Amino acid sequence: VPQRAWTVEQLRSEQLPKKDIIKFLQEHGSDSFLAEHKLLGNIKNVAKTANKDHLVTAYNHLFETKRFK
């Protein structure tokens, strides 16, 4: 089981690129989880459509539901 890579403050910070969060989610989330949160596909394309709040919610949801690969 992966550990949380970032704190809530870090997740919301401008310093953390959306692409980093997407990469983490794609590496650790199950396909059904990723599909549900519309996070499947090319990281660049996902970054265009997903806002930061959406990614933070998905990140927290992944750990709450433990839907890891």
Rank of each mutant, 00 (worst) to 15 (best):
P2T: 04
R4F: 08
R4N: 09
W6D: 04
W6H: 05
T7N: 07
V8K: 06
V8P: 13
E9H: 04
E9K: 05
E9A: 05
E9T: 04
E9I: 03
Q10A: 06
L11Y: 02
L11T: 02
L11M: 09
L11E: 01
L11R: 01
R12A: 13
E14M: 08
E14Q: 09
E14F: 07
Q15H: 10
Q15I: 06
Q15R: 09
Q15T: 11
Q15K: 14
L16C: 13
L16V: 15
P17H: 15
P17N: 09
K19L: 13
K19M: 13
D20S: 09
I22E: 01
I22F: 04
K23D: 06
L25C: 01
L25M: 07
L25S: 00
Q26G: 02
Q26C: 05
Q26I: 10
E27D: 12
S30F: 02
D31N: 15
D31L: 13
D31V: 11
D31A: 13
D31K: 10
F33R: 00
F33M: 01
F33I: 02
F33D: 00
L34A: 02
L34E: 00
A35D: 10
E36N: 06
H37W: 11
H37L: 07
H37C: 09
H37Q: 08
K38W: 09
K38I: 04
K38Y: 10
L40R: 09
L40A: 11
N42R: 09
I43Y: 10
V46C: 06
K48H: 13
K48D: 13
K48C: 10
T49C: 13
T49P: 02
A50N: 08
A50V: 15
A50C: 11
A50K: 12
D53H: 08
H54G: 11
H54L: 10
H54A: 13
L55N: 00
L55A: 03
V56L: 04
T57E: 14
T57L: 13
A58W: 03
Y59M: 03
Y59S: 01
Y59W: 03
N60Y: 06
N60Q: 12
N60H: 07
H61T: 14
L62S: 00
L62D: 01
L62E: 00
F63I: 03
E64H: 07
E64P: 01
E64D: 13
R67W: 06
R67V: 06
F68R: 01
F68D: 02
K69A: 10
